[in-house]
């Protein structure tokens, strides 16, 4: 899984590329959690345009980061999920917690 990062005006955007499952979620989680500690931000945007597959491990990853971001007073958004990712996001109720843009 490829991870790139952009930081602008207190918005931390993390671009994910590849397949997000239990195997890849472990390293993505560690990378994002490190960024959350090191980078000053108010909003975390998870850009999923490049994610070609996601199962419930992806939901766990998003929910876990949401809790972490909230605990330090920030907010979180999901950007550009594909049709099949959107279906899983809706099924999980994640869309009630954060904006999908």
């Amino acid at each position: 899984m490829e991870i790139t990062v952009k930081q602008e005006n207190q918005i931390l955007t993390v671009f994910l590329k590849g397949e997000l499952d239990h195997h890849t979620a472990i390293s993505v989680k560690d990378t994002i959690d490190m960024l959350l500690v090191k980078t000053p931000f108010k909003v975390l945007v998870l850009d999923m345009a490049g994610v070609t597959f996601m199962d419930s491990s992806g939901i766990g990853l998003i929910a876990g980061r949401y809790n972490r971001v909230r605990s330090i007073g920030g907010s979180m958004k999901i950007a550009n999920p594909s049709f099949s990712l959107t279906r899983i996001l809706k099924m999980s109720g994640i869309e009630k917690l954060m904006k999908i843009i």
Binding site: S56, S57, I59, G60, L61, I88, M91, S92
Partner: peptide, 14 residues
């Protein structure tokens, strides 16, 4: 603790 969501069987059923 492993950030599992309990969604696995729901996804399989759906």
């Amino acid at each position: 603790e492993l950030e599992r969501t309990g969604m696995g069987f729901t996804i399989m059923q759906t």
